[in-house]
Design a protein around this nucleic acid. Structure first.
Lengths: 148, 148
DNA sequence: GTAGCTGCAAACAATTTGCACACCG
DNA sequence: CGGTGTGCAAATTGTTTGCAGCTAC
């Protein structure tokens, strides 16, 4: 079975088998968003644009994009998930690596932040307590300059 | 070594007006738990003990205990909340203050961890990006020595 | 043509709330 | 008694799933 994957702008949805209007719409909404958005936000935005895409479909695309590692997911303190495109995979900068986010509570605008010292700290305290298979969640929230 | 707990314990529920069997049962379940537990866990444990306490009531007590700062709440990556009694206020180390948790994914056993460097890091990156009113969520998950 | 994709409704799971009744003080 | 506490059922919210019809390839 030959596969395709068009040759133009870096396509999202590497896990997708077919290309559909709805998938493209979700991609577009994610691209246009200047920060993290909830599934419902994206769905609302699409409706606003006149795109008819079911909420279910939005969730399904987000799920597969997340599984494919093409979007970042941040769990807000209230338990709701927000999504944002990962930074484009640049051939010159392949291994994107582990990072966290500084997210605006008002508009979702986010800055990717890295904290080697934090990763190290987490590993250290875990090791000191004898814990293994360690993972961590770390998100920073605040008000961006425009909303301060 | 020594397990003391269930004997003479500091009274919980500083916000409560009345003392009831259900409130005491929730307190007891929290005291006996050796780690973080979800509301449903606690409710199940109470039933197992033969205590009839409504799930609603468990939630209500957890809510008020959390508001009173008597229990810590950790949001798991799947969005469910887990609760655990705060460590007893140590007279020798009063200002317990801000801390995070290293939680076992299997049994909920947790170690309180502090990371001044992490707090500092968060403040630094936020300031660098011009973000204000900064807060952060940080939890470390792993397998405790008994479950590794 | 057919498997994947879509969308509506229904299912789900965690948590909250309305309301009548119970019972602590 | 009086009002807080309780509990059941129903409502909420975010997200997932069943399934029949649609459509990209």
């Amino acid at each position: 079975m030959g596969y395709m994957t068009t040759g133009a702008a870096r396509p999202l949805g590497s896990g997708r088998v077919r290309s559909t209007r709805q998938g493209a719409a979700v991609d577009a909404a994610l691209r246009d968003a200047d920060g993290f958005r909830t599934a419902q936000d994206l769905h609302g935005e699409l409706r606003r644009r006149g795109e008819t895409v079911g909420l279910t479909t939005v969730y399904r695309h987000l799920k597969s994009l997340a599984d494919a590692g093409e979007i970042d997911v941040v769990l807000r303190p209230d338990g709701e998930s927000q999504y944002r495109l990962c930074r484009p995979v640049d051939p010159a900068d392949p291994a994107a690596g582990h990072h966290h986010h500084l997210v605006c509570r008002k508009c979702g605008r986010a800055v990717e932040v890295e904290g080697p010292e934090v990763e190290e700290w987490a590993g250290r305290v875990a090791a000191a307590a004898g814990y293994t298979q360690v993972t961590h969640t770390l998100e920073v929230f605040g008000l961006c300059p425009k909303h301060s």
